[in-house]
């Protein structure tokens, strides 16, 4: 070992001291930036028409960030399916028991509905495209773990379908953004030409935000499913 553990510890403790010194000068943790950032709380409802302000920020104020984030997942899924397409699963060589299979099969529709709910109601209640997408991905994952190994394996979605769904999600996101260019004069601008802005707190409200939620939900769900399946198993 070129650098002994002692040297590393000394270095890190030095770093710790410096960081502590610096952090001590940060503004107090519960500091309220008065008018600067609570602008979202005060004006968010009027601006965007949704009550969930995290969703409002994710899909409207900083929708462009979310596009980038979706692109990151897209890239990760693409890369992993390129790098590590596994042909054989090293675990779970035998089929799972009947209890597990029937249990899972009966749970899956409920999970699906739950995921849909999180996505569709992301703008007025806790949740959103990302969380919902993860729940949807879990359906594919659970299904594949239960039925996709051993003999007689069945897959919920083929690899190509998942990729298509993911791509469609990303394309949808971009198209909605371009819609904004044509009807509102800016990329990703929240437009009410396609969807009514609706009344606050209703299911149909927030203009494009629910649709963006759906797009990102599809994208994240398919992306995570691809990542999981490639890391574990894929045909």
């Amino acid at each position: 070992m070129l650098y002994s553990r002692t040297v590393i510890i000394i270095m890190l403790s030095g770093l710790f001291l410096l960081a502590l010194l610096t952090f001590a000068e940060l503004p107090p943790i519960f500091y309220d930036f008065a008018d600067k950032t609570s602008v979202y709380i005060q004006e968010g409802v009027v601006d965007t028409g949704v009550t969930n302000q995290v969703t409002a920020i994710l899909f409207d104020y900083r929708g462009f960030d979310t596009l980038g984030e979706a692109t990151v997942i897209f890239a990760a899924a693409l890369i992993i399916s390129y790098f590590a397409p596994r042909k054989k699963a090293p675990m779970l060589g035998v089929r799972l028991g009947v209890l597990v299979r029937y249990g899972v099969a009966s749970i899956l529709p409920f999970i699906l509905i739950f995921g849909m709910y999180i996505i569709f109601f992301g703008h007025i209640s806790p949740g959103g495209g990302f969380t919902g997408g993860v729940v949807l991905a879990s359906i594919v994952i659970i299904f594949d773990i239960t039925f996709g190994f051993g003999q007689g394996r069945v897959h919920l979605l083929s690899r190509d379908t998942k990729k298509s769904i993911e791509s469609i999600g990303l394309v949808m996101f971009i198209l909605i953004g371009i819609w904004g260019v044509f009807f509102e004069g800016a990329f990703l601008a929240n437009s009410s030409t396609l969807v009514e802005k609706g009344t606050l707190g209703e299911f149909v409200s927030g203009g494009m935000i629910p649709i963006l939620n759906i797009a990102s939900g599809l994208k994240v769900g398919a992306g995570l499913a691809i990542i999981f399946n490639n890391l574990v198993k894929e045909n």
Partner: peptide, 21 residues
């Protein structure tokens, strides 16, 4: 940070969004 009429103090939504990203 889900705006409801009965509540008037919310945590900041922006850091949460950033954290999510």
């Amino acid at each position: 940070p889900i705006i409801r009429p009965e509540v008037d103090s919310y945590v900041q939504p922006l850091p949460q969004a950033l954290a999510l990203t």
